[in-house]
Design a protein around this nucleic acid. Structure first.
Length: 421
RNA sequence: GCGAACGUAGCUCAGUCGGUAGAGCCCCGGAUUGUGAUUCCGGUUGUCGCGAGUUCGAGUCUCGUCGUUCGCCCCA
């Protein structure tokens, strides 16, 4: 039997509905802030990602699904969403249409070791905002994310962590200073961090080895070395968050994995997902648009992982409810039942028509399991006199009604609205 | 890429010292006429992940492999 590829999975209806609930809630909330959906291709030229995400990041170095196109050009399945949005922003001439707010959703692909909440094809929903430079944009985005998480019922279990990664003006001097400091204690670092020291020293800061953590805590933090502009930006952000009453925590050791981040970085974390503690993360990438060949344009964005959010939701959240009615059809009632089902559906009702046949008894069992509040029975007698037997599944009472006008009898139009208008 | 645990019915699991595979749930049928849930009766369900090896004999022991989970790494 052929199985799904490692790290990929099926979402059966209950789970697919949960993802849809999360996505639709997100799009609704984001829409209130002016974000509109953008759809970009699932694959791009490999070079787009290696330039935007950073050639020395793990994502680009060892996690991308790359393949040669038939003409020999190297393509890659997208490992994240921002690069393509920046590309689309430039390619479609939106640089003078600021602020430009877009959100995206869909699958991303990374060749990683699968774990709970971590897949090779996973799904993100995220937003990108181009133009605004000040911390007001940062604060608004975080408020929006928290409003979204509130709307899906998760806010109380999550924490907002923020940090500033500085800008080119202050990061380079800091980087040198950090390298000097860490080189002095090099022997105390783990093997991994000794390599990081040369390649990406900032990452030593969020190593989980106890020894490294101690040394990292004692090392100079960027937050103390920020240039005045970055310090003001970060101070402005925290002030705005306080005005909003949002709980936040400054994590001076937080480092983002992608090269393009600058100044504000943030994560929404949970303690309920083992090693995969981030459910949403993002930050400012003020230099990226220019690096990609566009006019200097500050920008900020984030992405949330749908699988991780879905894991945190209670069972049944977002799942479709039972049908409005179950239709049992036997003998001569089958034809009229099909017609009746269609007319009820045309009026917006969800109707589960028994297609398998079987005895009245077995059909009633199916009706019970469907969860429908009423069962409609159409057999020989009802077929003859243009009626239908209506059974209330909660109290077992039933009555015989004419099929003509059944809709108004069962669901008076003023009392309830169809579940699917 | 590294380390560890686990893979038995659709699901959750048991399976002793190596001796031809089990429970509960689910599902299906029945308990007189065309009526669900509760109850009772009956029934179906297996490549013991896959492949080698040891053995008279392997679900059980050994090796390999694939997958899942946990940790590392990284990240949403």
């Amino acid at each position: 039997m052929i199985k799904a590829v490692r790290g990929t999975r099926d979402f059966l209806p209950e789970e697919a509905e949960r993802l849809r609930f999360i996505e639709e809630t997100a799009l609704r909330i984001f829409g209130r802030y002016g974000y509109r959906e953008i759809r970009t291709p699932l694959f791009e030229k490999t070079e787009l990602f290696s330039r935007a995400v950073g050639g020395t990041t793990d994502i680009v170095e060892k996690e991308m699904y790359t393949f040669p196109d038939r003409n020999g050009e190297s393509l890659a399945l997208r490992p994240e969403g921002t690069a393509a949005v920046v590309r689309a922003f430039l390619e479609n001439g939106q640089t003078r249409n600021l602020p430009w707010r877009v959100c995206y959703r869909g699958p991303m692909f990374r060749y990683e070791r699968p774990q709970k909440g971590r897949y090779r094809q996973f799904h993100q929903i995220g937003c990108e905002l181009f133009g605004p430079e000040g911390p007001l944009a940062d604060a608004e985005m975080m408020a929006m994310i928290m409003a979204f998480l509130e709307a899906i019922g998760l806010r109380g279990r999550l924490e907002l962590e923020i940090n500033s990664l500085g800008c080119p003006v202050c990061r380079e001097p800091y980087r040198e200073r950090l390298v000097r400091h860490l080189t002095g204690v090099r022997d105390g670092l783990c093997d991994n961090c000794r390599q990081r020291l040369d390649r990406n020293p900032l990452r030593v800061l969020d190593c989980k080895e106890p020894g490294c953590r101690e040394l990292a805590a004692a090392a100079p933090h960027l937050s103390g070395q920020l240039c005045p502009a970055c310090r003001d930006h970060f101070g402005g952000l925290t002030a705005h968050l306080d005005v909003l009453g949002l709980r936040w925590r400054h994590n001076p050791l937080m480092v983002r994995g992608l090269d393009y981040y600058s100044r504000t970085a943030f994560e929404v974390t949970t303690g309920d997902l083992g090693a995969q503690n981030a459910v949403a993360a993002g930050g400012r990438y003020d230099a990226l648009v220019a690096e990609m060949g566009g006019p200097p344009t500050p920008a900020i964005g984030f992405a949330a992982g749908l699988e991780r959010l879905a894991l945190l939701l209670e069972d049944g959240v977002g799942a479709a409810g039972p049908p409005d009615a179950y239709l049992v059809a036997v003998e001569q009632g089958v034809g009229p039942a099909l017609v009746l089902a269609e007319s009820l559906r045309a009026a917006g009702r969800t109707v589960d028509l028994n297609l398998q046949g079987g005895s009245m008894k077995s059909q009633m069992k199916k009706a019970d399991r469907s969860g429908a509040p009423v069962t409609l029975i159409l057999a020989g007698q009802e077929a003859l006199d243009a009626t239908v037997t209506v059974k209330d599944m909660h109290n077992g009472q039933q009555r015989v009604l004419p099929r003509d006008g059944l809709l108004d009898q069962l669901w008076p139009t003023t009392a309830t609205r169809p579940s699917e208008p």
